[in-house]
């Protein structure tokens, strides 16, 4: 999903930067507020940032014969709501743009919009919808984490199609072409990432129950009736 440095026309690069900036600034304030009001959140906040840091560094093979990387923005969006991930995701992209020549500064806005704004919001939306429809925590986590991954790559395809419409088939043709490169390759990765998200939340529900209850992910003490456990 990284659009390489200099690969978006200047107008598009500027437009996406302007579009992403308020989300990132709002996200920075959300992170500061969370840490200040709930210092005990810092550990889980670190875990959410670390999850996207490690997953977005790992390039995985896909059934299409190409490789791509997951995004890891879903769990943080579920735990701390999407604005927090707007900042954490952008930090990851900045690290990669500056040190790895992966992505770029001119395309940081577009990449942040896909990776740190649309992905987390899509995942969070899926999570809330699934929970409202009565799904359990883990199925909702799977849907959210997988969709946050996939939505990022769909957004990148949209951005590229807007910038480079096909000479004959226009925007729609270009969109199909870029979706063919990104989205299809991404499907197995999104499933794998969803499973990893489920694994993470299985570990957290056992070991971080107080935090998950405070964040509203778990209802307080649903296991209180399991007598004899202690």
């Amino acid at each position: 999903m990284h659009i390489a440095e200099g690969f978006l026309p200047a107008g598009h690069a500027a437009g996406w930067t302007i579009a992403a900036a308020p989300f990132v600034v709002h996200g920075a304030r959300a992170v500061v507020k969370e840490v200040r009001e709930n210092p005990e959140s810092t550990m889980l906040l670190g875990a959410a940032g670390a999850f996207t840091f490690v997953l977005s560094a790992i390039k995985l093979p896909s059934v299409t014969g190409s490789s791509s990387h997951p995004t890891g923005t879903g769990p943080g969006a579920i735990l701390f709501r999407p604005p927090v991930m707007a900042l954490l995701g952008t930090v990851v992209l900045l690290f990669q743009a500056l040190l790895l020549a992966h992505g770029g500064l001119t395309t940081l806005g577009a990449n942040a919009f896909a990776f740190a704004v649309v992905g987390p919001w899509a995942g969070y939306g899926a999570y809330r919808l699934a929970r409202a429809a009565g799904a359990g925590l883990l199925p909702a986590v799977f849907a959210a984490v997988a969709l946050a991954d996939l939505a990022t790559y769909v957004t990148t395809s949209l951005q590229l199609a807007l910038a480079f419409p096909d000479a004959e088939s226009g925007f729609a043709g270009a969109l199909l072409k870029f979706l063919g490169v990104f989205a299809v390759t991404q499907i197995p990765l999104a499933i794998g990432e969803g499973l990893l998200g489920v694994l993470l939340f299985r570990v957290l529900t056992v070991n971080a129950r107080p935090e998950l209850e405070r964040l509203g992910v778990l209802k307080p003490a649903p296991l209180a009736t399991t007598g004899g456990a202690a």
């Binding site: 999903m1 990284h2 659009i3 390489a4 440095e5 200099g6 690969f7 026309p9 200047a10 390039k59 093979p61 014969g65 190409s66 490789s67 791509s68 743009a97 500056l98 040190l99 790895l100 020549a101 992966h102 770029g104 500064l105 001119t106 590229l160 480079f164 870029f178 490169v181 990104f182 390759t185 991404q186």
Partner: peptide, 29 residues
């Protein structure tokens, strides 16, 4: 299969169509 990255696949395709990036990475390892 080569398992080339999808990001690189797109930039290669755009360059093949005649696009030249207008800004280079400040640091390329």
């Amino acid at each position: 299969s080569e398992y080339g990255g999808t990001d690189a696949a797109v930039t290669e395709e755009l360059e093949a169509e005649g696009y030249t990036p207008w800004f280079d990475p400040l640091f390329s390892p």
